[in-house]
């Protein structure tokens, strides 16, 4: 089970981020359901190279209807699942 605190619409954001990771990395539903805040991403998942990151950002933009600027993308964003979900939520409420 996920430790991520969720409520209402934010549940949907977290679900979208999980689905994008599932689709880009070819993970199973069970694998992405097991992701929690501290699940490491960049460096821990060998498939997540710079090409995959580029696709991931564009898919997040498309599915969440947000715009991600070049300078918002840094190593910290992909450090763990929690950071990525927090970022997506902040973009939606911005």
């Amino acid at each position: 089970m996920s430790d991520i605190q969720t409520n209402g619409q934010n549940d949907a954001v977290e679900r979208v981020v999980r689905n994008v990771l599932r689709d880009i990395l070819g993970l199973s539903e069970d694998q992405v359901s097991g992701f929690d805040r501290d699940t490491e991403l960049f460096g821990a998942l060998p498939e997540l190279d710079s090409m995959a990151v580029a696709g991931l950002l564009t898919e997040m933009e498309d599915r969440l209807d947000i715009l991600i600027e070049d300078d918002e993308v840094d190593g910290e964003l992909f450090e763990n699942f929690g950071n990525l979900v927090d970022f997506a939520r902040a973009k939606i409420t911005a």
Partner: peptide
């Protein structure tokens, strides 16, 4: 956009 991102990376 996706291709530009790989280039920036």
């Amino acid at each position: 956009r996706t291709m530009l991102r790989t280039r920036i990376a």
